[in-house]
Design a protein around this nucleic acid. Structure first.
Lengths: 344, 344
DNA sequence: GAAAACGATGGTAACGTTACCATCTTTTCT
DNA sequence: AGAAAAGATGGTAACGTTACCATCGTTTTC
C-alpha cells in the first residue's frame, strides 16, 4: 500500500504538501494541487488513519457496550447510535456483554487500549467501578438505560419506575389482585426501579406487597421461562404477570402456554419494553414502551459534545418517559366487575 | 495518559524492556519484570494500540457492513460475528448501508483508511466494483448473503433459490394457483434467486408464470406494504403471497389486514427469512428459514483464516440450506380438494 | 525602488511502539 | 581457566502522518 511519501515523490513535492492537499487544499497552488491529486489517483493512495490517529489523538471511533444486540430494544439503540455517529463521521464498535462482568471489563480494557474517543456504556451492575475505570482515563462516557450511584457520569435512561407503576396500576384497574412480578437482576438499577414502581402502585392502591409474588431472574427469555415455570407450579396462581422486560415476558408467555393456560383469559401478561409492531404481525403485548431510538440519539449527542468540547461539563441525566400501550395480552379479571379506566 | 517511556523511567529500565514485559514476559528476569509491573500498575499505564497498529499493520478490527441491523436476520448475523470475533480478540465496527450505494461506498472508504483487518460485506448491488475496490487494496473480504458475479471473493449465503422454490411448491401443494411474488430489488442476487425459485416451482408444476403476479420492491416493511397495497387494488386477487424476505411479508400482512382480509383464510402469506420464535409470542408465519447465526460464524471463520494465513487461498463459496417451516399463515385453498403433502 | 506582507513550499521532529542489532553479564562446557 | 553459549538489557530507527518553524519568491505598499 502506497504512503504519503510515495505520492510526494511521484508528484515531485514534499510529503507535507500532499498532506496539505488532503487537509487544507486551499493552501496549495492549483497547479501543484492537481499534480498531487493526479499522483493520489494514479497510486490509489489511501491515507493511513492509524498514523493520523497517533498524531492527533483522535480515532473517530465510539464504543457501544451493551448487553445483547439481539434484544430489539438494544437493536434500536444500536441503530440510532450508528446513525447519529455516522452523521458526525464517527464509527461504532459494537460489544455484547451479556451482563457478564468479566466479559464487560475485558471489553473496556481492549477499547481503552484502542483509544476509542468515547463510550456508550450499559454497565452490567450498578456498582460504579467500571464507569470509574473509564473516567479515570479521562475518556468521555455516557451511561445508557441505567443509573450508576456513586459515579459522576452522564446518563440517558427511561423512567422505569413510572413504567412499571403504570403497568401495575393498569392491572389493578382491571381488577387484578394476584399480580406476580418477574423482576430483573437486583444489582441493575432498572430492575430495582421497576420493582419499586410495582410496589408503589400496590401500596397506593391499598394492597399489600406479598413477597411470594415477586421472583427475581435475569433479563433473558430463558430466565423468564424458568421463573414463570416455577411460579406456575404453586398451588395459587396469579391472575396477572408483570415482566421486568420484554424478554422475561416472552419467556413467561411460553411457559404459560406450555402449561396449557391462555393469555389473557387465564393470566394477563404485560411488561416494560415494547417489541416493534412491524416485527410481529399483530402486536399483542400490553407494555410500557420505551423509546430506544431516542435514547441512542440523545446519548450520542451528549457523548459527542463531551468529545468536541472537552472542558468541564455539568453532569447530565436525561430521563425519557415510557408510554403505556394497552393491547390484547391484558384483560379484566372475569370474576370481578371492573371499571375500564386506566392510566390515572 | 502515561506512555511506555514514563513506565520505563519509573522502573529504571529502557522502554523496550517494558514492551517485553507486556509481550514476552519470559524474556525478562523476574526481578526486572516485577519492577516494571509495579510501575505499570502505579501509573495505570494502558498500552497504546494505535502505535502498535502503526508498527504491526494490524488493527484487530473487522468491519461488518450490512444493510440494516434492525432486521432480525442481520441482528443475528451481527451477534454471531461479534461472538466469533471476540473469541479471537477482534472487535467489530458496525455499519448500516440501507442498501444505499453511496452510503456504502463512503463506509468502505472510511474503513479502508482505518485499516480494518478485514471486511464482512453485504454489497448493495450485484455489481463487483465495490468488492473489487477492497480486493485491490489486498484487504481480506467475505461477502455475506449475496453473490457477486465477476468478483473472485469468498461468499457465505443461503440457498435462496431453493428456499423460494420450496415455499412456492408448498403453496402449490395447498392448491394455490394465483400466487403473487413480492420480489426484492432485482439488482441484488438473493432477490433474483428467490424469483428464480418461484418461477421454477411454477414451471415444474406445469403452471404458467404470469407477470401480473410478480411485483418488485425493496427489502423493507414500507415497500412490502406499498406493493401489497397496490396488488390488493386489482380486480383479481391472489390466493397466496410469497414475500422475498420477512420485511416484505410483514408489510404485506399489514396491508392485507388493513384491506379487511384475513390471513390465511383469504390469503396465505409466506416468505424467505424467519422471525425468531422467541421474539413473537406465537410464531405465525410459514417461512423458508435461513440460519443467520451460522452465516455469521462461517463467514467470520473464513475471514479470520484469510487474515491469519495471508498467501493465496482458493475462493470459497459456502451455501447453507434453508428450512421450510410450516405454520399458520398458509392454508389450503378452500374451494379445491388438496392432498396435504409438501416439501417433496 | 526598497521594505513589508503574503503565498507557496519544505525540513525536522514528534506521536508511541517494537524490530533489529549490539552490548554486557552470567552460565556452561572442555 | 578460558572459550563459547546463553540470558538480559539497551540504542537506534522505523511505521505514516502532521505541527512547527524556516525559506524562498512574488506581490503590495508608500
Amino acid at each position: 500500500m502506497p504512503n504519503i511519501r510515495d505520492v510526494a515523490t511521484l508528484a515531485q513535492v514534499a510529503p507535507i504538501t500532499v498532506s496539505r492537499v488532503l487537509n487544507n487544499p486551499d493552501t496549495v497552488s492549483p497547479k501543484t494541487r492537481s499534480r498531487v491529486e493526479a499522483a493520489i489517483a494514479e497510486l490509489e493512495y489511501i491515507p493511513n488513519q492509524i498514523a493520523r490517529s497517533l498524531r492527533s489523538n483522535r480515532t473517530n471511533t465510539l464504543a457501544l457496550v451493551l448487553t445483547d444486540i439481539t434484544n430489539p430494544f438494544w437493536t434500536a439503540v444500536a441503530r440510532s447510535v450508528e446513525d447519529a455517529a455516522r452523521g458526525q463521521s464517527f464509527n461504532v464498535i459494537l460489544c455484547n456483554t451479556d451482563e457478564n462482568e468479566s466479559k464487560q471489563n475485558e471489553y473496556l480494557s481492549v477499547l481503552l487500549r484502542k483509544r476509542v474517543d468515547g463510550f456508550l456504556f450499559v454497565p452490567a451492575r450498578s456498582e460504579p467501578d467500571a464507569v470509574r475505570s473509564i473516567l479515570r482515563q479521562k475518556v468521555p462516557v455516557v451511561v445508557l438505560d441505567r443509573r450508576v450511584p456513586g459515579a459522576e457520569v452522564d446518563v440517558v435512561r427511561s423512567n422505569s419506575e413510572a413504567g412499571a407503576y403504570e403497568l401495575t396500576r393498569h392491572l389493578i384497574t382491571l381488577g387484578h389482585r394476584q399480580i406476580a412480578m418477574l423482576s430483573g437482576p437486583q444489582n441493575v438499577s432498572s430492575a430495582q426501579e421497576r420493582l419499586d414502581g410495582y410496589k408503589r402502585a400496590l401500596t397506593e392502591a391499598g394492597l399489600t406487597v406479598e413477597e411470594r409474588w415477586i421472583r427475581e431472574g435475569e433479563y433473558t427469555v430463558d430466565s423468564g421461562y424458568a421463573v414463570a415455570g416455577q411460579l406456575l407450579l404453586e398451588s395459587e396462581l396469579p391472575t396477572a404477570l408483570l415482566g421486568a422486560n420484554n424478554f422475561i415476558a416472552l419467556g413467561a408467555m411460553r411457559a404459560i402456554r406450555e402449561a396449557g393456560l391462555r393469555i389473557p383469559d387465564d393470566i394477563s401478561v404485560t411488561c416494560v419494553d415494547d417489541i416493534p409492531d412491524w416485527l410481529v404481525g399483530e402486536p399483542f403485548l400490553t407494555v410500557a414502551a420505551q423509546s430506544p431510538y431516542d435514547i441512542g440519539i440523545q446519548a450520542t449527542k451528549l457523548l459527542l459534545r463531551q468529545i468536541r468540547e472537552p472542558g468541564v461539563h455539568s453532569v447530565e441525566e436525561i430521563v425519557l418517559p415510557t408510554e403505556l400501550i394497552v393491547r390484547r395480552s391484558t384483560k379484566a379479571v372475569s370474576t370481578q366487575a371492573v371499571i375500564g379506566e386506566y392510566g390515572r
